[in-house]
């Protein structure tokens, strides 16, 4: 955990025009391979969306935790 290089952290618990996946995809575009983006989402459906997006884009979920009713997910850029 302490060795993860988190490039950016996104609080995606509020409404956003790009949506959580749009914000995540934008940040991952700028991350370097092996760097991570942390995203906080407010519901389990969005957490599932993040997991699906990560799998579809060939990236890796390295942390997925429920904390105080929110979900903290860290996605590592693989390529």
């Amino acid at each position: 955990m302490s060795s993860l290089k988190v490039y950016k952290s996104i609080d995606a618990t509020s409404s956003s025009c790009s949506g959580p996946i749009g914000e995540l995809s934008g940040a991952m575009n700028d991350a370097l391979p092996s760097e991570c983006v942390e995203i906080i989402v407010g519901d389990p459906a969005t957490r599932d969306d993040v997991r699906v997006w990560a799998a579809k884009t060939g990236n890796r979920v390295v942390v997925d935790k429920e904390e105080q009713g929110k979900f903290r997910i860290i996605v590592e850029k693989v390529k």
Binding site: S15, S16, C17, S18, G19, P20, I21, G22, E23, S25, W53
Partner: peptide
């Protein structure tokens, strides 16, 4: 569009 759907907010999408 670079993510699933056409917009990021579910009911607008």
């Amino acid at each position: 569009y670079p993510i699933q759907g056409v917009f990021g907010i579910p009911n607008v999408n």
